[in-house]
Simulated scan of single mutants.
Amino acid sequence: MTDILEQLAERQGPGPFNQPGTQDRGEDRTLERFLKFNPPKFIGGPDPELAENWLERMTNIFIGLDYTEEMRVSFAAFQFEGVVRAWWDVIRRKWERAQTPWIWKNFTREFNEKFLPSLIQEKREDEFIKLRQRTLSVAEYEGKFTNLSKYALELVVNE
């Protein structure tokens, strides 16, 4: 967590917010705003649904906040703990060497490759293809259809 805060401070550069006693109350307190959304921590694990739910929650938080792509990546990584933190440190160094842009698209690609592998995504696409209403209510069926449709975007051209 300290590493991420230091990186944010370095990227923001010197300014009145880094000088003691000169912080203006009206300044944007991005980290405080982010934490008010009560973002979940992510520690990994064998259940890909946990990863999927975490990423969806983080994405929803960032929809509500007008943050730069770089801040989104930094704040999402701020929520990593344990082995996931170690994994992120490897990815961060890889990005630095390759000069990979800190954008949400790159972050989600790396995250999905690690925690929601293509085999799981293919399984969900197959679930979508085989989805039938049967005993489900219309609302339940629509919910499953919508949830699984993100794994088969090429099959769902429009609403």
Rank of each mutant, 00 (worst) to 15 (best):
K41L: 11
L50R: 10
L116Y: 03
G82E: 08
T108R: 15
N60H: 13
R11C: 15
P16N: 11
I91C: 04
I43K: 06
Q99R: 15
K114L: 04
I120C: 04
R132H: 02
K114C: 08
E56K: 14
K123G: 06
P16I: 05
I103Y: 12
Q12M: 11
E122M: 06
R109C: 13
W104P: 07
Q19M: 02
R85T: 13
A76K: 07
A9V: 09
W95Q: 06
Q79N: 05
S118R: 11
F80D: 00
I43C: 08
R33Y: 02
R72C: 07
R29A: 11
P14E: 14
G44K: 06
L116A: 07
F34L: 00
R57M: 07
F115R: 01
V83D: 01
F37Y: 12
W95H: 10
E81R: 04
A139M: 12
I43P: 02
G15E: 10
S118L: 11
E96I: 14
R97E: 13
E32I: 14
M71Y: 12
P101I: 14
T108F: 14
K130L: 08
E125Y: 01
R109K: 11
F128A: 09
N106Y: 13
K130Q: 05
F17V: 04
K41Y: 03
R33A: 04
T100N: 06
R124C: 00
L116S: 08
T68K: 12
K41V: 10
Q79M: 14
R72Y: 10
G26C: 05
F42T: 12
E125P: 00
N112H: 12
V83G: 01
D66G: 00
